[in-house]
Write a protein that binds this DNA or RNA. Structure first.
Lengths: 237, 237
DNA sequence: ATAATAAGTTAGATTGATCTAATAAAATTA
DNA sequence: TAATTTTATTAGATCAATCTAACTTATTAT
């Protein structure tokens, strides 16, 4: 079934033509998966795609050839797959629709966050910019969903995260390390020894009233305790 | 693509089993069309279906066989096609989703009534009773859409029209002739001469203050003027 | 470095929804 | 009623998305 459209640039005799190209529901789902894998720093391989979409490798193989023909990805036999700018844009377009829908279902229709995903998986393929723009408006052009995931804007631009000190964080929330406020060697060494690199996750488990120290879980593995000073110097988002 | 589910009754060894049967998006669209044709008192023929759905007759022919196997319709070669009770229920289920969606898009998302249909055609196939029940709730369980079309309830029951005299109607609304309060031959002849049969549409264009006469448009074609007496005797819904 | 294992590819089949061309039945007109 | 026209059906092709089985290339382990 054909669902989406993609703006397609074509050069003939040195002149540029723009035309809309149909994108099937299946293709949209592949692009979404490719984008997600790339974001998770996983290799975009035939195997990974097949597992993500729960289909067999030969199916992925032929689809990947089609997506390459349509210039959504770069693909050479036996090599790793890469999204092109066009593919990334298309993926972000769907992602926008998905996240706006989730937020809408949750905020406006008061559906539970757990049931919202499956419905959004269906609605994200609806072809109507007006529909999603209205939802976007109604929600006040949100930049992040309740999981802290960024919502691309109408031009496919991702909002920039604004980081803040971990000490401003809330209990039971998961943050990502975005930077440090203190660049002393000893502090950086301390982080190193805990395996805390940029992008590492920090979950706040407990906060002590008396000294504002925090019990945290790092990268969903190591548990430890951070003093208020440490918390103030860790910039997260 | 599989979208909907249909409750299916099966008898084995005199025992009844219920199971859910998949209904494809295409099948849903056929059922909708069949129901509409039946409602318009058009013959449900291969040709009519083909024209409605803008596909070729042989395609319809094979689909019709499949729908018959699934017990959504009764079909015999060269004979007229009939919806079964199961088919009718399924059609009403989709119709409900369609009309609730239209109303929702118009009332809640403030989309124009003209742009609402195409979006609803897509959303009606979303598989989530929770989603549509929420919308239904939010709209206060509406029984009719802005065109006066009935919205089936969650059990597939159509609301009963309550007819009222056209003289109680409002400007710019479209009504359907449901009966007459005066059965005099001359009155009926008058209606006849205007091509006003049961189900004919009457749109109120203007209402004169001084004598309550109405400028109306009949069947979206003929324009004329009805006296208050005529309006009082036309029962519409 | 070679053997074993994992990942990727090709070939060919299947299913659902569609088509065209050819044929058959039903309805209409002369 | 016979001829003509309309409608319905059958047969066979195509296309997208999927599969299994068999084969090839790349990676890993011994």
């Amino acid at each position: 079934m054909l669902t989406g459209l993609s703006l397609f640039e074509m050069r003939v005799n040195n002149r540029i033509f723009y035309l809309y190209q149909m994108v099937s529901l299946t293709e949209e789902n592949y692009l979404k998966t490719l984008y997600r894998l790339a974001g998770e720093n996983q290799e975009i391989s035939v195997k990974n795609i097949a597992e993500s979409l729960n289909i067999k490798m030969p199916t992925v193989n032929s689809m990947v050839k089609k997506l390459a023909e349509k210039k959504f990805i770069r693909y050479e036999k036996y090599k790793a797959i890469e999204l092109t700018e066009k593919g990334r844009k298309q993926a972000l377009y769907i992602l926008r629709k998905h996240r706006l829908t989730e937020l809408f279902l949750s905020e406006v229709l008061s559906l539970g966050w757990e049931e919202v995903h499956d419905i959004a998986e269906q609605i994200e393929h609806i072809q109507s910019d007006r529909f999603f723009d209205r939802i976007d408006e109604m929600l006040g052009h949100p930049q992040f969903d309740p999981h802290g995931e960024p919502i691309p804007d109408a031009n496919g631009k991702l909002p920039v995260y604004k980081s803040f000190p971990l000490s401003d964080g809330r209990i039971n929330k998961v943050y990502k390390l975005a930077g440090v406020a203190n660049h002393d060697g000893s502090f950086l060494q301390f982080l190193d020894s805990l395996g805390l690199t940029l992008g590492a996750t920090i979950e706040i488990k407990e906060i002590q009233e008396f000294d504002k120290s925090m019990s945290v879980k790092l990268n969903n593995k190591t548990k430890t305790i951070f003093s208020f000073t440490v918390c103030r110097n860790l910039l997260v988002m």
